[in-house]
Write a protein that binds this DNA or RNA. Sequence first.
DNA 1: GTATCTGCAAAACATTTGCAATTCT
DNA 2: AGAATTGCAAATGTTTTGCAGATAC
Lengths: 133, 133
Amino acid sequence: MMVETKKILEEKGIRATQQRLAVYQYLSSHKNHPTVEMIYSSLHPEMPSLSKTTLYNTLKLFSEKQLALALTIDGDEVRFDGDTSDHGHCKCRRCGKVFDFPLSSADMGTLPEGFRRESSHVYVWGICGDCRK
Amino acid sequence: MMVETKKILEEKGIRATQQRLAVYQYLSSHKNHPTVEMIYSSLHPEMPSLSKTTLYNTLKLFSEKQLALALTIDGDEVRFDGDTSDHGHCKCRRCGKVFDFPLSSADMGTLPEGFRRESSHVYVWGICGDCRK
DNA sequence: GTATCTGCAAAACATTTGCAATTCT
DNA sequence: AGAATTGCAAATGTTTTGCAGATAC
C-alpha cells in the first residue's frame, strides 16, 4: 500500500519522500477538504519533524501535478481535495461543511469566442439538509 | 448621476458617504475585476484621505449587501465585480485577463439531498482567443 | 556523489482590530 | 447631538524566502 502510493507519486515525476507520502496518504483518506492547518495538526504528532514550509511546498507541488485540487471556496483559506475528478463543491453557511456534488456533463455556459477551457471549479453556497431540519 | 448613485446605496440601507460613493462609482465604471490594490491605486490620487481600512470596510459591506461580488478565482487575491447578475468568470493563464460569460440557465449539477442553494460561482481557466492566435 | 528536499528563522503580504477624531443626518 | 464612519498604527495570520544541513537515488 505504501508501495502503491510511492508509484503514484513517481509516475507524476515526484520524488517520493517520507513527507510527501504522508501528505498524499492523508489526502487519500480524508475527504473532508482539509485546510493546511488541519493537515498539519493531524500529521505533526506522528511526524514531529514535518514543517509547515514543507507542507506548503508539497501541497503546491501536488496541485501543479494534478494530484490534488486547491479549493478557494472561502477567500480566506485554501482547502485541498485529493479527488481530482470533475465535481463541484458546496458549502453550508450554517455548519460550515463542504460537500462534493457531481457536475452535469453538459455545458455550464458559453465561454467567450475562442477561449479554450482547461479546468474549472464550481462553488455553491447555501444551507445543507441537516441544518434545515 | 451622483444623485442616482446615492439613491442606490440608500435603497440598500447603506449610508452614502463620499468614500462609499467613490468606490461604488469606480466599480460601476471598471468592469475589469479589480483587486483591492487596483481600486486603491486608482482612487487614492484623487482622494488622498481614502484609507485601505475604509476600502476594505466598504468592499466587505458591498459584498454583504449584494452591491458587488467578491471573486476568489485566484486563491491569493480577491477581485471585485460590480455586476452582481448571475454569470461565470474565466481567466486566461497566459495574459491573466478575467472575462465574464453567461451561465446556461439549466442546472449545473445535482446538489446533495436537501441542500438549498443561495448563490454560486463558476470559475474556468484556460487560454483566451487572443493568446491562441 | 550530487542534485533535490527539508526545516528553521525571518521576511513579506494581505487583512483585521482598537480607538480617537471626524462626518452624517 | 448622537450614532455611524473614517483612518491611523499596531496586531494578526498566512504564505514565501534564504540558506545550511539532511535525504534520496
